[in-house]
């Protein structure tokens, strides 16, 4: 088994960060509108206007909504489009579009499409679990989409050792995070949290990424339990990823969220199935999966 002589440090991880695309700052604008819906909406709409890909997506959703009405002609004005789809949908669209663009640019050649399918599925599950337990959906969506960003870093900058760890996990000899710790001294959850902190993402999002495989020591942060359960659910419901499997589910995290997995949770599964179609289709239609297959 290969391994680094000394454990990876935060400084080493962040020194390589600049080789990744610039993290989309519009995420800050999105998060700023969460507590005060009137704050920064203008900034958010202005950003949409400067981003042709995002604007096209907003117009597409607005015109889809308009097809259910008796409006004449297509929606061509951004403020009309924004008012039609609503602030919540605008935030969700902005998060998915901007992070899909970021992830597309960060893709190392040869990474399995399953990586992004799993990230998209975890994002959907995290948002729906958060809404199910009456928590804000948007931070959960961001945490879900980025929860395995540490694996991307490892694949990009330590590809041989990471693939060795991945194969060990595929053979079910140990979990992926344990195999990573043997080789790098840290796991992808820690690396992902370092990256998230460096991008000034909110502490709850960073904590959720840091503890998504082992949440019990950090359940004082509600998003930790949400992301842990969501990541397990994305595998349990077979929503994407290469060879999804369920290994560990924290009893304490489920208890904290009040999830009893009775018949009432089947509507949660149904919502996840329906909505996952939206994000996975978006990722595929914007070349994230195609890029990694190339």
């Amino acid at each position: 088994m290969g391994a680094l002589r000394t454990p990876l440090t935060r400084e080493q991880v962040l020194a390589q960060r600049d080789a990744l695309p610039v993290f989309p700052r519009v995420i800050d604008d999105v998060l700023a509108t969460l507590d005060d819906p009137d704050a920064n909406v203008g900034d958010l709409v202005a950003h949409v206007g400067r981003d042709p890909v995002l604007a096209a997506q907003v117009f597409s959703i607005a015109n889809s909504a308009a097809s259910h009405t008796r409006r004449d002609g297509k929606v061509r004005d951004l403020y009309t489009a924004t008012s039609m789809i609503g602030l919540a949908r605008l935030r969700q669209t902005t998060i998915v579009t901007s992070l899909a663009g970021f992830l597309r640019g960060a893709l190392p050649p040869g990474l399995s499409p399953g990586f992004w399918e799993h990230s998209a599925a975890a994002g959907v599950c995290a948002r729906q679990v958060a809404l199910h337990v009456h928590q804000p959906g948007d931070p959960a969506l961001i945490a879900g989409l980025l929860h395995d960003i540490g694996q991307l870093w490892l694949f990009r900058f330590q590809p041989e050792l990471f693939m060795e760890a991945w194969q060990v996990a595929v053979r079910r000899e140990m979990t992926i995070d344990a195999a990573e710790r043997e080789r790098f001294g840290v796991d992808h959850a820690q690396i992902g949290a370092w990256l998230a902190e460096s991008w000034d993402l909110p502490p709850p999002v960073c904590a959720a990424i840091r503890h998504h495989h082992a949440p019990d020591g950090a359940l004082h942060e509600p998003l930790v339990a949400v992301l842990h359960v969501a990541e397990v659910l994305s595998n349990a419901l077979d929503l994407g990823g290469s060879a999804p499997r369920v290994g560990y589910l924290s009893d304490a995290a489920c208890e904290q969220l009040g999830l009893r997995w009775d018949e009432s949770t089947e509507s949660l599964f149904g919502r996840i199935d329906a909505v996952s179609h939206f994000i996975s289709t978006y990722f595929r239609s914007h070349g994230v999966s195609e890029d990694v297959r190339a």
């Binding site: 499997r245 589910l249 997995w261 009775d262 599964f269």
Partner: peptide, 19 residues
């Protein structure tokens, strides 16, 4: 999918049955 899961744990067992 649940092949390696510890179904003696209450939450895992309940999730398995529901899925």
């Amino acid at each position: 999918i649940f092949e390696g899961a510890d179904l003696s744990r209450p939450a895992m067992a309940a999730l398995f049955e529901r899925v």
